[in-house]
Amino acid sequence: MNKAQLIDAVQEILGGDTSKRAASDALDAVLQAITKAVKKEQVQLIGFGTFKPVSRNGRMGRNPKTKEPVEIKPSKTVRFVASAALKNSL
Score class of each variant (00 low, 15 high):
Ser55Met: 09
Lys39Val: 08
Ala82Arg: 06
Asn2Val: 06
Ser83Glu: 03
Asp17Cys: 04
Gln5Cys: 05
Arg21Met: 13
Lys52Gln: 13
Ile72Val: 14
Phe51Asn: 07
Thr77Lys: 11
Ala37Lys: 08
Ile34Asn: 04
Ile34Met: 13
Ser55Gly: 12
Lys20Thr: 13
Pro74Leu: 00
Leu90Val: 14
Ala4Phe: 00
Val38His: 02
Ala84Asn: 14
Glu12Lys: 15
Phe48Val: 07
Val54Leu: 11
Leu14Cys: 14
Lys52Asn: 13
Phe51Pro: 10
Val10Gln: 04
Thr35Gly: 14
Gly58Met: 07
Leu86Phe: 12
Glu68Val: 12
Gly47Met: 10
Asp8Glu: 14
Pro64Gln: 01
Lys67Leu: 13
Ile72Ser: 06
Glu68Trp: 06
Glu71Trp: 07
Asn2Gly: 10
Asp8Arg: 08
Asn88Gln: 11
Asp28Glu: 15
Gly61Arg: 07
Val70Cys: 05
Leu31Gln: 14
Leu27Gln: 05
Leu45Ala: 05
Ile7Asn: 01
Pro69Glu: 05
Arg21His: 12
Met60Phe: 00
Ser55Arg: 13
Arg21Ile: 13
Pro69Trp: 04
Ile46Val: 15
Lys65Asp: 11
Leu90Ile: 12
Gly61Lys: 09
Asn88Met: 06
Gln42Gly: 10
Lys39Ile: 05
Val38Thr: 10
Asp17Glu: 15
Glu41His: 11
Gln42Ala: 11
Ala84Glu: 14
Phe80His: 04
Lys36Leu: 08
Val54Asn: 09
Ala33Val: 07
Ser19Phe: 06
Val43His: 00
Val38Glu: 03
Lys52Trp: 00
Ala22Cys: 10
Ala85Tyr: 00
Pro64Arg: 01
Phe51Gly: 09
Val38Ser: 03
Asp25Gly: 15
Asn63Gly: 02
Arg56Ile: 07
Ile34Tyr: 01
Leu86Asn: 06
Phe80Glu: 09
Thr77Pro: 12
Phe48Ala: 11
Ser89Phe: 00
Asn2Thr: 07
Pro74Gln: 07
Asp8Thr: 10
Ser83Ile: 02
Ile13Asn: 10
Met60Asn: 13
Glu12Val: 11
Ala85Thr: 14
Lys52Met: 09
Ala4Met: 09
Lys76Cys: 04
Lys40Gln: 13
Met60Ile: 15
Ala4Arg: 08
Pro69Cys: 01
Gln5Asn: 13
Lys87Leu: 08
Gln44Glu: 14
Gln11Gly: 08
Ile34Gly: 03
Arg21Lys: 15
Val78Met: 04
Glu71Thr: 14
Arg21Gln: 15
Arg79Val: 05
Gln42Asp: 14
Gln11Trp: 00
Ser75Pro: 07
Lys36Cys: 01
Ser55Tyr: 06
Phe80Ile: 04
Ala29Asp: 08
Val38Ile: 10
Arg79Cys: 04
Ile7Trp: 01
Ala22Arg: 12
Asp25Phe: 11
Ile72Pro: 03
Leu27Arg: 01
Gly15Tyr: 02
Gly49Gln: 00
Asn57Phe: 00
Val43Ile: 05
Lys87Val: 07
Lys73Glu: 12
Lys3Tyr: 01
Glu41Ala: 14
Ser75Phe: 04
Gly47His: 02
Leu27Ser: 09
Lys76Gly: 08
Ser19Tyr: 11
Asn2Met: 05
Glu41Asn: 14
Arg79Thr: 11
Gln11Asp: 08
Leu90Trp: 00
Asn63Val: 05
Thr66Arg: 02
Gln32Thr: 15
Gly58Gln: 05
Leu31Thr: 12
Thr77His: 10
Leu6Lys: 04
Gly49Asn: 03
Lys76Ile: 02
Ala33Met: 07
Gln5Ser: 06
